[in-house]
Amino acid sequence: MASPPPGIAEILNTVLQPDLIASSLRIATPLALAAIGGTICERSGVVNIALEGLMLIAAFFGTAAALAAPTALGVSPVAAAWIGVLAAVIAGVVMSGLHAFTSITLKADQVVSGTAINILALGLTGFLIQVFYDRQGTTDGAATLPPLFVFDVKASGALGTVWEWVNGMFLGHTPLVYVTIVIAIVAQWAMYRTRWGLRLRALGEHPRAADTVGINVVKGRYVAVLMSGALAGLAGANLTLEQVGSFSENMTSGRGFIALAANIFGRWTPVGSYLASLLFGFAEALEIRLQTFAAAINIPPQFFLMLPYVLTVVVLAGFMGRAVGPAAVGKPYEKE
């Protein structure tokens, strides 16, 4: 006998927990970091399809560094995790340097260059897992980042419930979750309130005009691409060192592309990218929780797993006509 189908009340009761918001924030964080990286990059006039590969390679080197640090440097697990984060950022910057070199200096097709980096990242990480760890698929688990705040507060009654929700939703996260929110706000401010931001936007809208008034187009674009590499690197670190600890092949599973969609949905602004990522994060968190009822409500689990990808297409389809990207994005700059 199958158990009776769960009522709406039971589903809501299981789904609507502080943990739903908490995991939305957690899932949104790497997406948002990559999306903000994409925003900065595209604002400078360079398409960054390579976000997926940058995240992947950063995730690998982050994990590898965090695994090696305790024995190599004799540091504590927490310090090792932070060394992993640093290594991930460096890996992201180095790989994005390749994208910058091919698409800015060599004026290669930016989408093709990005694709090459994605395939390179997949091949190189798979190759290095075998070389470093003599096996295929996944690495060992490294130490993960501890939560930033740990409050040992016990309250009872209504106040206790409120505290439980606030604590459960917002206070149990690793530092990267908060850092990402700060990055979104600072990047938004910098893009619209600083000279750097004005110049960055000029590069992507009308590089010739920017060049005419003495802005170095090549240098400006290099800086933007490398920044996107650093952010994608941080996103990669977040994928492994935030919770799981280990790296597995192709673990980004399309997140770089979803991040690009979030950047478009967020109208090429950092805060917009963050909020769009939050929407995708919420959808995924909801999907994970609803999956527990998959068998009971007779929907195969694969249909839940499709949801983030379907949502991305729906968002693009519904929004695209009204969102206009930087005018010169994707075009190499030819100095006269």
Binding site: L98, T102, T105, L106, K107, A108, D109, V112, S113, T115, A116, I117, N118, I119, L120, L122, G123, L124, G126, F127, Q130, V131
Partner: peptide, 25 residues
């Protein structure tokens, strides 16, 4: 040598074809 080497070579071919100006550069 891990068979993934072939994926790396494949990515590099794409990169070099896309950036054929690398030679003139």
């Amino acid at each position: 040598v891990p068979d993934k080497l072939v994926d790396i070579v494949q990515a590099l071919v794409i990169l070099f074809v896309a950036a054929e100006t690398i030679i003139t550069w």
